[in-house]
Simulated assay, not measured.
Amino acid sequence: MAPTLHPETFCPLGAKMGMATGQFNKVDFPGCSSPPKAVTANRGRSGLQNTLAFYSMSQLDKVQQLEYLSLLLNVNNPQEAKGAYAALLPAATTLSVQVLGEIPKGLEQAIMAGQSKNWKSRGWRAELKRKEFSPASNGHQLTYRLYPGK
């Protein structure tokens, strides 16, 4: 898919990954998102489960221009991190194939290791980023994001 397409064009991809989005919002939240979906059974110290959500986002002042596509994995129960990573993997693979036409080399290994990594592919920049919660024992985020190439 072309990185120049309107962000709303990408909203139906959420349903292909089992995370249907609401309608594209041009005012308050410039994009579309799915509700967070629980991907493992048990809650962490924070009382929250591990969740996964999909986003197609633009900026308030540039609603017609895609800022990024994102799969956001909240690992709220680090003891079930591997199961959460396993839930992110097929969604990231589907998103990659639908948008990039290919799976970035090393994506599976990076996701399953919970490690940050970057790629460039067909006019896009892909990023897997890990961000620790504070305190770290409460978990982390692992976000797979596609940006229009720059």
Rank of each mutant, 00 (worst) to 15 (best):
T94K: 03
E102H: 06
P78L: 09
Q115F: 02
T51W: 01
K117R: 14
S116N: 04
P30S: 08
L88F: 01
N42D: 15
Y68N: 08
P12L: 02
G106W: 00
Q98A: 12
R125H: 10
P3M: 06
L72D: 10
K120G: 12
D61I: 14
Y85C: 02
S134F: 11
G31Q: 05
L73T: 06
S96M: 02
P36I: 00
L60K: 15
A113M: 11
Y55K: 04
K82L: 12
M19L: 09
L146R: 00
T4Q: 14
A53N: 13
T40R: 03
A41R: 14
E67W: 10
Y55H: 11
Q23A: 15
M17P: 03
M17Q: 03
A91G: 06
I111R: 00
L60R: 15
A136L: 08
G106P: 02
G44R: 02
F24P: 05
G101M: 07
A86S: 13
S137F: 07
A91P: 04
H6N: 13
K82C: 06
A92E: 01
H6V: 10
T4H: 12
C32K: 01
A86M: 08
R45Q: 13
A126I: 03
H6I: 09
G31T: 04
W119G: 02
S121G: 05
M19G: 00
S46T: 15
Q109E: 13
A15W: 10
S70E: 12
S116M: 04
L95C: 04
S70M: 09
Q79A: 15
L5P: 03
L69H: 03
L72N: 10
A113G: 09
T93Q: 10
G44T: 05
G83M: 01
T94Y: 00
G44I: 05
N76R: 06
F29S: 07
P12K: 05
Q141S: 10
A126W: 01
L71P: 05
A53V: 08
S96A: 08
G101K: 07
G149Y: 01
L95E: 02
I103A: 04
R145F: 04
Q109A: 13
T4R: 13
E132P: 02
K16C: 04
A20N: 06
P36T: 00
P35G: 11
Q98Y: 01
V99Y: 01
Q65K: 14
K131M: 06
